[in-house]
Amino acid sequence: MTLTVQDISVARGGIAVLEGVSFTLTPGHALVLRGPNGAGKTTLLRAIAGLQSTLRGDISAPEGGLVYAGHADGIKPTLTVVENLAFWAQIFGTTHIDTALAAYELTALADRAAGALSAGQKRRLGLARLLVTGRPLWVLDEPTVSLDTHATGLFAAAIRAHLAQGGAALMATHIDLGLDEAEILDISPFRASAAVLDSFDEAFL
């Protein structure tokens, strides 16, 4: 269940943004990606999640062990909180949604339509989805957006519990979650030098 990233380069809109990124993430550990806006955190995470291809390098992620959460939560406003969660549980072939509801203090809101939730509550629902998937490796893009201090604490607790169970988390965030287990990787040194274009566009110059 180890995620190994070796010397990868990723591009956004045909322009390489990151070069030569390498790291290893072992069970029980969290890795926090830091870097200024536009540095390529989202692109890197999407590449690791398998949503886009890399220019170079290898990613060896455990087969069927990864779950991705992006900027959008994928919540259906006309379904209730429970229906939303139950759907993802079924997709990932699991059943226990009660613990996930409790972990993010959503039990009281269980039968409310997700469209009636506040932004922070929606985010909590989106994060609760990670718990019902039962996947060991979480790939999270800005998970704490629109969470208040208390909810951020819930998230940190969930991460800690996940790591204690032998899970791992890779996330891009600017907030200090107070996680002792978390290593920090600043990706700004990997910024693609002198604007390398992807192979095709180079052929034109």
Partner: peptide, 16 residues
């Protein structure tokens, strides 16, 4: 709709 609310990304990384 699935594209706008991000479900499509999540479904694409799901076991289906």
């Amino acid at each position: 709709l699935d594209w706008e609310d991000g479900s499509l990304d999540l479904l694409a990384t799901s076991p289906i």
